[in-house]
Design a protein around this nucleic acid. Structure first.
Lengths: 190, 190
DNA sequence: AGCTAAGAGTGACCTAAATCACTTTTCAAA
DNA sequence: TTTGAAAAGTGATTTAGGTCACTCTTAGCT
């Protein structure tokens, strides 16, 4: 467990250094969780008590439409943060699912604890500020790619941006992430 | 100008209170700018020196594809923050345009000044942390709406979410925001 | 008030991608 | 090592939405 917490500390300190005292305070607000492939981290309709930092593994966050079709909002792996951020922030029942594509391990942070460590340790507030900002920028680029690019160039762009991800994820899920049918994506690869 | 700065202070204090000293420090890092309808706040290819808080007015942020077609990334009005966040954060030439749909006024914040006030005043770091988080949540919902909803329901959703905006913006721009052609949107309205 | 230009509606036609149906390949669990 | 299920490929058909061309309407400007 010590090494796992070290990874988390390194993750924080990529942006802002923490004193040992600060880190001890911060780390005491996380709890550990481990799940097997196919298990759910978050289910629509249920309370979303945590955001999760992924120590190891791979998950998909997705919503299911009226026709039962799955739409991938995000893939998240080592060093990523994942949650139903909307439900988490407003402390209401979630509307998306998050499940494991591989056996995965997480550090869990409740909203109360997040606010506590942000108010207590300014470096942590700044960490999440910068992280959120990066996330915002990424989502803006994804929106632009959905609005401006063809399916084919969206796929190439993703291949280029996250090559390791593609190896770990079935193509039908990539298709869903790109907003295109499995069949159409298949016709481009070949 | 005093009343305008008061508006900005109110905006900050919606989330976290500031002492008068803190506020004086913070506000000294902003500068005022005013533009007429059709003038550019940001142009692709040029440096993006600021993020902008909108005191009054309405702007559109958009990118232009190879065919010269405009794709709206964001509309922003009173109390919104707008920039080419990606270029701003990385201090590189921008890739989007922002221009005024109405005469508009702004408070401008440079990256250097933003970091300065965030490190100096934790409440400001927390303010931007929460704001970024809200922005992230909004963009996730927009992505989901692009992936899961039909054009018609995306339009209804937007009408419902930002009714005042629709009144101030030509429908062809709404169409562009929704990722659909002017003609197709027109057929739904009627 | 009159004029220009932008915005908006609408019909005809076209195309990219969805859908459906089926086959082939890959992989993991018994 | 077999075997059943998930993943992936592919052909035929359908369809939502794009594009083009034109008209009608609205809003600034002088």
């Amino acid at each position: 467990m010590e090494e796992k917490l070290d990874l988390l500390r390194q993750h924080f300190e990529e942006l802002f250094a923490l004193t040992d005292d600060e880190w001890n305070f911060v780390q005491s607000h996380f709890q550990y969780k481990s799940l097997k492939k196919h298990q759910f981290l978050i289910q629509a309709g249920q309370a979303v008590d945590f955001e999760y930092w992924i120590i190891k593994g791979l998950v998909k966050a997705y919503s299911i439409d009226e026709k039962g079709k799955e739409h991938i909002l995000q893939f998240a792996m080592e060093n990523y943060w994942v949650s139903d951020h909307c439900a988490f922030q407003h402390q209401e029942p979630g509307s998306i699912f998050v499940d494991c594509l591989e056996d995965s391990e997480f550090f869990c942070l409740s909203l109360e604890n997040r606010e506590k460590i942000c108010l207590q340790v300014p470096a942590v507030a700044n960490f999440f500020r910068i992280k959120s900002n990066h996330g915002y920028i990424n989502l803006q680029q994804r929106i632009l790619s959905l609005l401006t690019m063809t399916v084919e160039s969206r796929y190439e762009y993703l291949l280029n941006k996250l090559p390791k991800l593609i190896q770990r994820v079935p193509k039908k899920l990539i298709a869903s992430y790109l907003g295109v049918s499995r069949e159409t994506l298949s016709r481009f690869n070949s």
